[in-house]
Nucleic acid binder design. Structure first.
Lengths: 255, 255
DNA sequence: TCCGCCAAGTTGTATATACAGGCTAGTCCA
DNA sequence: TGGACTAGCCTGTATATACAACTTGGCGGA
């Protein structure tokens, strides 16, 4: 589909997003200033401003008055029920991350996996099985399936040093994710990998992630219940710092 | 703090948000049009447009070209690690909600509770203990402490018909919440209330909620692991519908 | 009566212009 | 040499204006 019907501020946004997604612009790189966009793209400054402002709201770029506009460091983002990279999370706690890769094989999707990824039975996928360690203690079993078409270089990756999550977001930005959180007893294999005593439950996160408009990876993440918890911080729409700090009266905005 | 330093589009947003929060404007009510704001608030139309457009992005209002701007139906919103009211959640599934109130007493905060609510040891609080049922099966044990100062009418409430969560949000809007999710084995009392077999884990949500700028309630919510899961949907900054629909070339925006 | 058309109001976008305020690098002066 | 200052760029905001597209209601003609 062509873009001839899109508003120009959206075309500008698309242009910049594409340059970020493609890697032409990396984190901390400078994005053209409003005035440069005015000249090179033949738009008015307000249009360029809207494009850049919305990209700021959406987390793609950061703007500093007087300096310029810069591509965000995606790694520094943090969200609600955050879509964590376990390695970053561990680093944030000042602990050491380790990782054993138990499996990295090419397979054919079947059953639950094919349904989760919304592909035909038999579609090529990579199956990864990793154990993540925090200061030497096993903290997560990552059982992940990735569409081979989406990440053809999976086989050659050293997931001991770059987590699958980090690798995948480096290929294409995360568009959407769906998570299900459960408490359940682990099976024998998971229990062994996590070195858990019998009877102890796991906190299980099942996560599907979208890119290019379709699900590309499905992960089951098992954590030992006694050593792991999920935290979330919720700020509702319009805590707007001002809900109780609001002295504006109708007909009386201050200039 | 005054608002004299806020930009005018923000003042406009605050104004409208306040009218929505206070109930002066309810779902589906009509919000002043851009031209009305231009006249009544003495701003330019672009400023009014920005205020209303951002309120749209933030989910407060919906706009229909040719018709007007209308307050969103908040019930249709959904959030990441959603701050659920268990009764609404059950109703949404088309099931029947029931509730036993096991305890509703006035106590003095001590230890963990005082710390969680950030008050002195001995501060007056209400302690609620409820079991929620979905189609007759116990689905949640709600062990909640509420600052008595914040909700003095707690003792007189019939929490069998209005859940504490609904009651508390009716007193003051939720400002902020912090959640911790764990998998753990229940103690004997919880296990009995939830009618769980021995050895089955609970999904536990611990939630602190802020209002008026301080924590006002702390809840421990136990759910049977075999019959309950948390779901979250994550849409990052900029799903922009267009990432893969992008044929714009540099120096060649279409007009 | 009924259908079609148009006017008025609304949102959506685009532009030109203006001023305020932050940041930086380079210049000039002591 | 070192420090203060300023010119120039940047973002942030605000306004006036314009045109397009959509919706509704009312008016007029068949």
């Amino acid at each position: 589909m062509s873009n001839s019907s899109k508003p120009r501020y959206q075309q500008l946004k698309d242009l910049i997003i594409r340059q970020i997604s493609s890697g032409a612009l990396g984190p901390h790189d400078r994005v053209p200033s409003e005035n440069e966009l005015v000249e090179r793209m033949s738009v008015s400054r307000m249009t360029a401003n809207r494009a850049l402002r919305e990209l700021t709201d959406e987390g793609y770029v950061e703007r500093i008055a007087g300096r310029g506009t810069f591509v965000s460091d995606f790694r520094s983002r943090s969200h609600m029920l955050e879509v964590h990279n376990i390695a970053d999370e561990i680093a944030q706690r000042g602990h050491q991350h380790g990782c054993d890769v138990l499996r990295n094989s090419r397979q054919h999707a079947r059953g639950e996996i094919a349904r989760a990824l919304d592909v035909e039975q038999g579609t090529d996928i990579f199956h990864l099985l990793l154990v993540h360690f925090e200061n030497g203690a096993p903290i997560q079993v990552e059982d992940r399936h990735v569409l081979a078409e989406f990440a053809p270089e999976c086989a050659g990756q050293d997931f001991g040093s770059v987590t699958p999550s980090a690798y995948l977001t480096s290929i294409a930005p995360l568009q959407e994710a769906e998570q299900i959180v459960r408490a359940q007893l682990p099976n024998a294999a998971v229990r062994r990998h996590l070195q858990m005593p019998e009877g102890e439950p796991c906190l299980v996160v099942m996560r599907r992630t979208w890119a290019h408009g379709r699900p590309v990876t499905f992960a089951r993440l098992h954590h030992p219940g006694s050593r792991y918890e999920l935290t979330g911080h919720y700020t509702p729409p319009g805590t707007s710092k001002s809900a109780s700090d609001n002295v504006v009266q109708l007909e009386n905005l201050q200039r």
